[in-house]
């Protein structure tokens, strides 16, 4: 693949990157929730009232937020980093806004790990 091809394809990947991270986090948390319930991880107490299952879910949630925030930050720099033609700037801006939207979606859709019952 030539460098031009790579640059072209990579801009499209950047546009999807924020929501791909959201999708991966969504799948990971949904799977972890199902696994934990399947193997009764909620019965393993770690810190006082916090069980292993909840700890894992919160850890994954924070990791997802961190990854989304890093991606949003990287995408925010894209319009400045890439070559300065209209197309690249446009796609860089789309990537930036998509990444911020994905960060918000991560917070809203996965935030319930903090306050809902995991297995009932």
């Amino acid at each position: 693949m030539t460098s031009d091809h790579r640059a072209s394809a990579s801009l499209l990947v950047w546009i999807c990157s924020g929501f791909l991270a959201w999708g991966a986090a969504f799948a990971a948390l949904y799977s972890a929730q199902a696994l934990g319930c399947g193997f009764d991880w909620d019965e393993i107490t770690i810190f006082g009232s916090i069980d292993a299952h909840r700890l894992l879910l919160i850890g994954l949630f924070l990791l997802a937020l961190f990854a989304s925030a890093v991606l949003a930050r990287l995408c925010a720099r894209l319009p400045h980093r890439i070559r300065a033609d209209d197309t690249a700037r446009f796609l860089g801006n789309v990537a930036k806004l998509s990444a911020w939207a994905a960060l918000a979606a991560t917070l809203v859709s996965l935030g319930p790990v903090l306050f809902t019952t995991a297995c009932y």
Partner: peptide
């Protein structure tokens, strides 16, 4: 459009809210 395309793949269980799913998954 990009946001809608991805988010639409994270909704499918709302057709299955009544099958007996834990609160956390329902909330997602």
């Amino acid at each position: 459009l990009v946001a809608l395309a991805f988010l639409s793949f994270g909704l499918w269980v709302h057709h299955m809210f009544a099958v007996g799913i834990p609160h956390m998954a329902l909330a997602f």
